[in-house]
Simulated scan of single mutants.
Amino acid sequence: MTALLAGLALGLALIVPIGAQNVFVFGQGVSLGMPRALWAVAGAGLCDTLLIVLGATGASALLDSVPGLRPAMLAAGALFLTYLGVKSLRAKPAEIADETGSWSPARTLRRTAAVSLLNPHAVLDTVGVLGAAIAAQAAASRAVFATGAVAASWVWFLLLAGAATGLRGFMTKERRVWFDRASGAILLVFAAWLAYEFVVVLK
């Protein structure tokens, strides 16, 4: 039980702070509501589960040993977040009204996976930090600790999507536009951060 709670606490500490993945899942809850937003929850949870398992099996050492992998991840993440940010900043009420009509589970899963796996900070934190923490546990406790970390991701994303769904009644199309633009600005800040780190890594 101690190992499970420790994994849960560390997982929440890494995932709760605002980031591109949280912004996206929350936005899906506002845009689509339940149960459609559960596809975003599932996508984000599965991606985090995959990264935690990779960290537990020693993939963090691979991230440090492959030349050029970190700069490539930073560049890809910066470009993708810039695309999402600009798209959100250009949101219009008419486009928001039609969003549910273009919805599909596969599209939501693809977008969630892209936000989750093209964010190098999320990858490095999940694989590196959690991987090191899992490795530091006693052999008998590692699986339980990892289970707690995985549970943290699923519980948090479910709560996030649920809270966003609760706000749908308040979010008129006009308010949604400003919410989307604020989300876009946040994503562009993260994109700029990744681009800065890319430049620093190349020096």
Rank of each mutant, 00 (worst) to 15 (best):
T2V: 12
A3I: 09
L5I: 14
A6G: 07
L8A: 10
L8K: 04
L8F: 15
L10H: 08
A13P: 12
L14H: 01
I15V: 15
P17R: 03
G19R: 11
G19N: 06
Q21T: 12
N22P: 04
F24V: 09
G29F: 01
V30L: 15
S31H: 11
S31N: 15
L32W: 01
G33C: 07
M34F: 15
R36D: 03
A37I: 05
A40L: 06
A42D: 03
G43I: 02
A44Y: 02
G45A: 00
L50T: 10
L50E: 03
L51A: 02
G55V: 05
A56H: 09
T57F: 13
G58V: 07
S60W: 14
P67Q: 04
G68C: 07
G68S: 06
L69I: 09
L69N: 08
L69S: 07
R70I: 12
P71F: 06
M73I: 08
L74A: 00
G77A: 09
F80I: 05
F80C: 05
T82D: 01
L84R: 07
L84W: 04
G85D: 01
V86Q: 03
L89E: 03
L89M: 14
R90K: 14
R90D: 08
E95H: 13
E95W: 06
E99V: 14
S102C: 03
W103M: 06
S104T: 14
A106Q: 11
V115P: 00
L117Y: 10
L118S: 02
H121S: 08
H121L: 13
L124M: 15
V127F: 11
G128E: 06
V129A: 12
A135Q: 14
A136Q: 09
Q137A: 02
A139W: 07
A140G: 11
R142N: 06
A146E: 01
T147N: 04
G148I: 03
A152C: 05
A152W: 02
T165G: 15
L167P: 01
L167F: 15
R168K: 14
K173D: 13
E174F: 04
W178G: 04
R181H: 04
S183M: 12
A185S: 14
L187K: 00
F190K: 00
Y196Q: 12
L202I: 12
L202D: 10
